[in-house]
Lab assay of single mutants.
Amino acid sequence: NQASVVANQLIPINTALTLVMMRSEVVTPVGIPAEDIPRLVGMQVNRAVPLGTTLMPDMVKGYA
């Protein structure tokens, strides 16, 4: 099963992502693939992302 990117903490709206904010986990539904974590660093979320939430492509500005 493919691992997805999951929020390791509450990520406030418009926050630029850092490695410490994300972890990989096998979840359903599948979100952004864990191998894209390096690409996500520095990108901003367009909404608040609660701890444990799977990051979906539409949550990250410029990802989709």
Rank of each mutant, 00 (worst) to 15 (best):
L17F: 15
G52L: 06
I13F: 12
R39T: 08
M21H: 04
P12K: 06
M59N: 14
Q9I: 14
V6A: 03
V49K: 01
Y63C: 01
A48Q: 04
L10E: 11
V20R: 09
A3V: 07
L51V: 09
L51H: 14
M22T: 04
T28A: 08
M59D: 08
E35D: 09
V45Q: 01
Y63M: 07
T15C: 02
P57G: 14
M21E: 04
G62M: 09
V45R: 00
G42F: 04
S24Y: 08
M59T: 10
A16D: 06
P38W: 04
V41R: 10
L55I: 11
I32G: 00
K61E: 07
G31C: 01
V45G: 02
E25A: 14
A16T: 09
P29A: 09
A7G: 08
T28G: 13
S4G: 15
V45D: 01
R23F: 06
G52P: 00
T53Q: 13
D58E: 05
N14P: 03
T18S: 05
T53I: 13
V27P: 03
A34H: 06
D36F: 04
I13S: 11
V49S: 03
E35K: 15
V20T: 14
L17N: 00
N8E: 13
P38H: 11
K61F: 10
V60M: 13
G31Q: 03
E35A: 13
V60L: 06
A64P: 09
K61A: 09
I32T: 03
N46W: 05
P50V: 14
V41D: 06
P29S: 05
V20S: 15
G62L: 13
N1R: 03
V41Q: 15
V27W: 03
M43Y: 11
V5K: 00
P38G: 05
Q2V: 13
L17Q: 00
R23Y: 13
A7Y: 01
M22I: 15
A48F: 05
Q2L: 11
V5D: 00
L19A: 06
N1V: 08
M22N: 00
L17K: 00
N1G: 10
A48E: 15
E25S: 14
S24V: 09
P33V: 13
V20G: 13
A64R: 01
P50F: 12
V45E: 01
N14Q: 03
E25V: 13
A16L: 14
D36T: 05
G62P: 05
P50C: 02
K61T: 14
A34C: 02
M22Y: 02
P57M: 06
A16I: 03
P29M: 04
L55R: 00
R39H: 14
V45T: 14
S24I: 10
Q9H: 14
M22D: 01
G31L: 01
V6G: 02
M56S: 11
T54C: 01
V30H: 15
V26E: 07
V49L: 04
D36V: 09
M22A: 02
S24P: 11
V49P: 01
T53N: 09
L17I: 07
V26L: 07
N8A: 05
Y63L: 06
T15I: 13
L17D: 00
M56Y: 04
A34T: 06
N8K: 10
P57H: 12
V41A: 07
T53C: 02
P12W: 11
V30I: 14
N14C: 02
Y63D: 07
V5P: 03
D58F: 15
S4V: 06
G31F: 02
V49Q: 05
L17R: 00
A64L: 09
A48I: 12
Q44P: 06
G42Y: 04
T18D: 05
Q2A: 08
E25Y: 14
M56Q: 13
A64K: 02
V30L: 15
D58C: 02
Y63N: 14
L40C: 02
I11E: 00
T15N: 07
L10V: 15
I37P: 01
L10H: 06
V30P: 10
L10D: 10
V49D: 01
L55M: 08
L19V: 07
A34W: 06
T54A: 15
T53K: 14
G42L: 06
A48L: 13
V5M: 03
M21Q: 11
M56D: 10
A16Q: 05
T54S: 09
P12M: 08
M43N: 13
M43F: 08
A7F: 01
M56A: 13
R23T: 07
E25T: 07
A48R: 07
M56L: 10
P33K: 15
